[in-house]
Design a protein around this nucleic acid. Structure first.
Length: 479
RNA sequence: CGGGGUGUGGCGCAGUUGGUAGCGCGCGACGUUUGGGACGUCGAUGCCGCAGGUUCGAAUCCUGUCACUCCGACCA
């Protein structure tokens, strides 16, 4: 049995065509189907179950930090969206707008929410009056619509599912703290739950969210070296509050504007999982979000006692794990491939020989090595095997991130790396967005990802213009 | 928004100089199989993207239109 042999012919190899590989995996693993509306995807049960697991984990993290869930309308009156000028300028080009209700033309057009800052502000205006009303720590799970020109399942879709946290604070310090805390929350989630390492930091002026004073971002690197903006956390200052006239009376009897944050992650994370962990045999799911953690495959299931024993193991394991016993009449080989394609982290094979010896075979999706284990300590063995899958995935992704991280000290070096070495590039930068534009033009799409929290001193001058450098920036192409 | 490509059973495709639609996979039944995508027999499935036109006759030729897709540009 050759481990390096590609077992699944329906999936295009990564090296041949990464984009096609991605599309194949998304379809063959039954995560999505295309719908009749451009850019809108049907998230199938297996894909949606991943999202549900993500939600459960993240939601618990948010609540532990004191946040409450709410639900806002999906329609925003156009005038409301226009209250904050930077915000509307950023989103206007990609809004879907409802103009007819029933049979009648609407008096005011309704924008299908691309994000809900304005709705939250409109509501906060009514419920925030005193410092005693602060902080307000709200979150909502919902869908949003952004009319994208080019779309790809999970990575960029016209409609997507996400969570958006919107908080209000009595002062700047507290709001800034919240902004950073939530980015840290995302970073922990990415590592601990998705097994994905990432670069984190602050967006440059040019890449900031429309209307924000600061945007912080988490930027994981995909297997092919391309970045994915994996989540953002924004500090707004009091800009929206001034535009929406939200005020409160502080302890000292002074009327003040609250300070605001928002933060969000979306179904795009599923795209990050696919492109970070997947291989030529298909998807590999981090155990903590895998809808099926253990697939039990009976061997020679028609033989006396095999299915009975398999069911017994299923019931035992189901107390601690998400388990599926496949007793369909597909061949065992077909089942092996099927669950590998769908990224199930652990396979358990059980046949007559195993039953005779009171053991079974565990196969990790990452290494595809078979390990014979005794049935006496099965729960512990499975637990350890799943933990090891998580660790291996994280280690592998970290290795990829390090290997594809380059340093550019000169302009020529930057262009050479951009051309010949896929991945992130660390370089010094003067702070002028003209240099960002120039580098992007010259390289055909390499943009600043962020100014990392921990900067290194790589030199004194900007990699683009040669003027004194202000920051170290991580650059890269993005999805 | 510019440039290219593709629309034919569920999926992937073939279809010659116009003659009334085929293959593989999948699907269903039965039988044999079962430790890395098994095999045989039988069977079901088509407004050939849509609308016009040419013609005795159009999947095929002409015009228009719509959708999808890839590469740019734009964008979280």
């Amino acid at each position: 049995m050759a481990n390096d042999k590609k077992m699944v012919e329906q999936i295009t190899a990564m090296d041949v065509d990464f984009a096609q590989w991605y599309t194949d995996v998304v379809k063959k693993a039954e995560l999505v189907d295309y719908s009749g509306v451009k850019g809108c995807m049907i998230i199938r049960p297996y894909g949606y179950a991943i999202w549900e697991n993500i939600q459960h984990d993240l939601d618990a993290r948010f609540k532990r930090l004191g946040h409450e869930n709410v639900y806002m309308p999906m329609f925003i009156p156009e005038s409301l969206l226009q209250k904050e000028k930077d915000h509307v300028a950023g989103f206007a080009p990609e809004c879907a707008i409802v103009t007819i209700g029933g049979q009648n033309k609407l008096a005011e057009r309704l924008v299908v929410r691309p994000t809900s800052e304005t709705l939250f502000c409109d509501h906060y205006k009514n419920i925030i009056h005193s410092y005693r009303d602060l902080p307000k720590l709200y979150n909502q799970w919902c869908n949003v619509v952004r009319w994208e020109k080019t779309t790809r399942p999970f990575l960029r879709t016209s409609e997507f599912l996400w969570q958006e946290g919107h908080t209000m604070h009595a002062n700047e310090e507290e709001a800034r703290e919240e902004t950073l805390q939530m980015l840290k929350c995302y970073e922990d989630f990415y590592r601990e739950t998705l097994a994905i390492p990432a670069v984190t930091g602050r967006k440059t002026e040019k890449e900031k969210f429309a209307g924000a004073m600061e945007t912080y971002t988490i930027e994981p690197m995909m297997h092919n070296g391309v970045a994915l903006q994996g989540g953002t956390s924004h500090y707004f200052g009091d800009g929206f509050c001034r535009a929406f006239d939200i005020t409160f009376t502080d302890k000292d009897n002074q009327v003040r504007y609250p300070h605001q944050t928002s933060w969000g992650v979306s179904t795009r994370m599923i795209g990050a999982i696919i492109m970070t962990h997947g291989d030529d045999n298909g998807l590999i799911l981090p155990p903590k979000v895998a809808p099926i953690q253990v697939a039990i495959i009976p061997v020679a299931q028609h033989k006396e006692g095999v299915l009975e024993k398999a069911n017994e193991l299923k019931n035992l394991l189901a107390e601690s794990f998400r388990v599926k016993l496949d007793d369909s009449d597909n061949s065992t080989g077909w089942k092996y491939s099927q669950y590998e394609m769908k990224g199930v982290p652990l396979r358990l094979e059980l046949g007559p020989r195993d039953i005779e010896n009171n053991c079974c075979v565990l196969v990790s999706r990452v290494s595809r090595e078979k390990k014979v284990v005794s049935l006496d300590h099965l729960v512990e063995e499975v637990k350890a095997a799943l933990a090891s899958v998580h660790d291996e995935l994280l280690a592998r992704a970290e290795k990829n991130l390090q290997e594809k991280m380059s340093i550019a000290r000169t302009h020529e070096e930057f262009l050479d790396i951009a051309e010949n070495h896929p991945g992130f590039i660390k370089a010094m930068w003067c702070g002028d967005s003209a240099c960002e534009d120039q580098l992007k033009d010259e390289t055909g799409g390499v943009k600043s990802r962020c100014i990392p929290f921990v900067e290194e001193h790589l030199g004194d001058t900007c990699v683009c213009c040669g003027k004194p450098a202000k920051h170290m920036v991580v650059f890269g192409r993005q999805y």
